[in-house]
C-alpha cells in the first residue's frame, strides 16, 4: 500500500506492506542509513528514532502506524552535528566503532525531551535498552549529563 511518511520535516510517499517495519522503509526505501539495524526485535536500541519527539524502536514499529506523525532520524537532528546532544557527544568523544551511537543519541534526545535534568539513575533507566558493544557506557552517561547541564535539547 501507498503511504505518506513525514521524516525530518519532508514528506515521502512510499509503497509498503502492512507489516513492514519503519526501520527498513527508512533505510532501504528512503535511503537514510544513519538509523541502524542490529537486533530487529526492539532489544538493542540501534534503530531508535523519534516519533512526535518520543524515542521509539523503528525495527518493531510498523511504518503504517506512524503516518501523519513527525518522524525524526539522526539525519534530522541537525545539519552538521550542532544539536546539543551531538555537541555533548563530540565534547566527550563518546564513540568507538560508532555503530550504536545514532540510536544512543536519539534515545538520549528522547529522554531529555521528557526530563531535561535526569539523575544518574534516571539516565541508567532510560538508556538501559541501548546496547553499546564497545563499552562506551561511562562516556554515554557523561555526555547525557553534559547535554542536560548545557540546557537540554532545545
Amino acid at each position: 500500500m501507498q503511504i505518506n511518511l513525514k521524516i525530518n520535516k519532508k514528506t515521502y510517499s512510499v509503497e509498503v506492506s502492512e507489516d513492514e517495519p519503519l526501520l527498513w522503509v527508512i533505510r532501504d526505501k528512503i535511503k537514510l542509513t544513519g538509523t541502524k539495524y542490529s537486533c530487529g526485535k526492539g532489544l538493542c536500541g540501534a534503530c531508535t528514532v523519534l516519533i512526535d519527539n518520543i524515542a521509539l524502536r523503528s525495527c518493531i514499529t510498523p511504518a503504517i502506524s506512524v503516518q501523519n506523525k513527525e518522524i525524526t532520524t539522526i539525519e534530522g537532528l541537525s545539519e552538521n552535528g550542532t544539536h546539543p546532544v551531538q555537541e555533548a557527544w563530540k565534547e566527550i568523544d563518546v564513540p568507538q566503532c560508532g555503530y550504536c551511537q545514532s540510536g544512543q543519541i536519539m534515545n538520549a534526545v528522547g529522554l531529555l525531551n521528557k526530563n531535561a535534568h535526569p539523575s544518574e539513575t534516571e539516565i541508567d533507566k532510560a538508556m538501559q535498552g541501548n546496547i553499546c558493544r564497545c563499552g562506551t557506557y561511562p562516556k554515554i552517561k557523561a555526555a547525557v549529563m553534559l547535554a542536560s547541564e548545557k540546557g537540554g535539547v532545545k
Binding site: 533505510r27 535511503k31 537514510l32 542509513t33 544513519g34 538509523t35 541502524k36 539495524y37 532520524t73 539522526i74 539525519e75 537532528l77 541537525s78 552538521n80 552535528g81 551531538q86 557527544w89 563530540k90 568523544d93 564513540p95 560508532g98 555503530y99 551511537q101 545514532s102 543519541i105
Partner: peptide, 21 residues
C-alpha cells in the same frame, strides 16, 4: 586527540558496510 570520524558518527553520515547503496 578526538576521533577523526567523530562528526560523521554523531550525524549518522558514517557509512558502515550495511549502509552501502
Amino acid at each position: 586527540k578526538k576521533k577523526v570520524d567523530l562528526n560523521d558518527i554523531v550525524t549518522g553520515k558514517l557509512k558502515f558496510g550495511l549502509d552501502t547503496q
